[in-house]
């Protein structure tokens, strides 16, 4: 697979424009014979919120997972903050990054999962302080103080000692957001953060995300919440079958879609 990556040596000049947080060029991803991403091109600027919508199986979650290298891309190029994801370029060839460096890069990217993936054997505070203490080597005292602050910020100041099993879905997801923020990431990825929630719990999570966007965090949000996309998103991307079908201002895309496929999808979900 590195051979394929090597083919396109021409587009690999360092992209260090300061405002670009994520840049994807013809990103290609296969699982076996199944082609999931077929040439994704997009740019997310600093402090921008990009929402990605699309039917299930369209590749939007996979693309998100490629950004922090949970999945390896097969072709194309992907940069986060001016640096290639998962590779280093030297002498015109791509070299896989050692695990240690991949892990170091992931610290700068927060991820929130559809099914929360909280650590069930730790309290809310334990979840939040685990990585700062063990990975970033922050002092325990400092991590706890900051952890409490973050849990306060997501409205769970009274739940610091609760275990995930004692919390509602909305509360769990807010802890998961606090956990990701504890590493002080410069980019946050949300993979359908509200899809596993009861309808009445969706609001509390979206409120936290809205506040986060307002504070200037760069966010990529895979979602089915069109209201959120319209209100908070700076750009909206509609994906289908591994392609970006349409992208642009959320209000325009949602109210006046240009492509038939987008119209069809929106007519079903709106």
């Amino acid at each position: 697979m590195s051979e394929e990556l090597g083919v396109e040596g021409s587009v690999t000049q360092a992209r260090t424009a300061t405002t670009e947080m994520v840049r994807a060029e013809r990103v290609w991803k296969r699982f076996g014979k199944l082609e999931v991403l077929k040439g994704i091109d997009l740019t997310v600027n600093q402090a921008e919120v990009m929402c990605i919508i699309g039917p299930s199986g369209s590749g939007k979650s996979t693309f998100l997972r490629c950004i922090n290298h949970l999945e390896q891309i097969n072709a194309g190029r992907l940069w986060v903050d001016g640096e290639l994801v998962g590779y280093r370029e030297r002498g015109g060839r791509l070299h896989e990054l050692p695990d240690r460096e991949v892990a170091a890069k992931r610290r700068e990217i927060g991820m929130v999962f559809q099914h929360f993936n909280l650590f069930p054997h730790m309290t809310a505070l334990g979840n939040v302080v685990e990585a700062p203490i063990k990975v970033s080597r922050v002092s325990k005292h400092e991590a706890v103080a900051r952890g409490r602050e973050l849990l306060d910020r997501v409205g769970l100041g009274d739940k610091v000692d609760a275990y995930p099993s004692q919390m509602s879905g909305g509360q769990k997801q807010r802890v998961a957001i606090a956990r990701a923020l504890a590493m002080q990431p410069k980019l946050m990825l949300f993979d359908e953060p509200t899809s596993a929630l009861d309808p009445e719990l969706v609001g509390e999570v979206l409120d936290v995300m809205r506040e986060l966007a307002r504070s200037g965090m760069t966010m990529i949000v895979v979602t089915h919440e069109m209201g959120f996309a319209r209100e908070v998103g700076d750009t909206l991307v509609f994906m289908d079958e591994g392609f970006i079908v349409e992208a642009g201002n959320p209000r325009e895309v949602l109210s006046n879609p240009q492509h038939e496929r987008t119209k069809l999808f929106l007519s079903k979900v709106l």
């Binding site: 927060g110 999962f113 909280l118 990585a131 590493m183």
Partner: peptide, 27 residues
């Protein structure tokens, strides 16, 4: 142990060994 636990730990920048020791094995 669910794969999501490993992914969550990895996305926080934990190494494979630390993920095993702090997240997977205790569960």
């Amino acid at each position: 142990i669910d794969q999501g636990q490993t992914e969550a730990a990895q996305s926080l920048g934990m190494s494979a060994l630390m993920t095993m020791r702090r997240i997977v094995l205790p569960q």
